[in-house]
Design a protein around this nucleic acid. Structure first.
Length: 167
DNA sequence: AACACGATTTCG
DNA sequence: GAAATCGTGTTT
């Protein structure tokens, strides 16, 4: 996928990632292709569920860059989350990649792909170890409220910004 | 410098 | 249903 693909609004990018392949080249040289099956959209400073709602901090800095960069962060002291930045410069949006066909759940996903803080700021458009390619075309998509963000309150906690491939 | 709290998973 | 476990943002 090129820069243009990621620089659109996160509500376009998140569902568009479904059915595409996440390519990972491991340190030992082996390569894996993983079908993206579940994503969530986190949209700007107004979105109370989005980490960027706290403003520009060292942690959220990458979300303010142009789309296509990787935002990694640790949750609950043990799980690394893989996020793909969307939108143009100074528009803090990101897609949380929650599931691939080979591993369900964001924590399992990053463990399987061996992703951690070393990928913070990685550019998917120009990387030799992780990127996104075309996959199956036009999968049927289902949307539901996002997971684990009840604390964000209304209207954010109920917005149907979680996207899954319908079986 | 100290503190509270998660965009989760696993096990009982 | 609760524990595991630590970086981040906020408060002192």
């Amino acid at each position: 996928m090129d820069r243009e693909f990621f620089c659109r609004d996160v509500l376009d990018v998140a569902p568009a990632l479904l059915g595409r392949k996440l390519i990972r080249v491991f340190p030992d040289g082996s390569t894996g292709a993983y079908l993206i099956t579940e994503t969530e959209a986190y949209r700007g400073q107004e979105d109370k569920a989005c980490h960027a709602s706290k403003g520009y901090t060292p942690r959220t800095e990458v979300m303010f860059r142009e789309g296509g960069h990787v935002y990694m962060y640790l949750i609950y002291g043990m799980y690394w989350m893989l996020n793909i930045v969307a939108g143009p410069v100074d528009v803090p949006q990101a897609v949380l990649v929650r599931g691939i066909a080979e591993a369900s759940g964001p924590g399992r996903l990053t463990r399987l792909l061996k992703l951690d803080r070393g990928f913070y700021g990685e550019d998917l458009v120009n990387s030799g170890r992780i990127w996104v390619e075309e996959g199956i075309r036009s999968p049927e998509i289902e949307s539901t409220p996002r997971i684990g963000i009840d604390y964000a309150g209304n209207p954010w906690k109920d917005l149907p910004w979680r996207f899954l491939i319908k079986l």
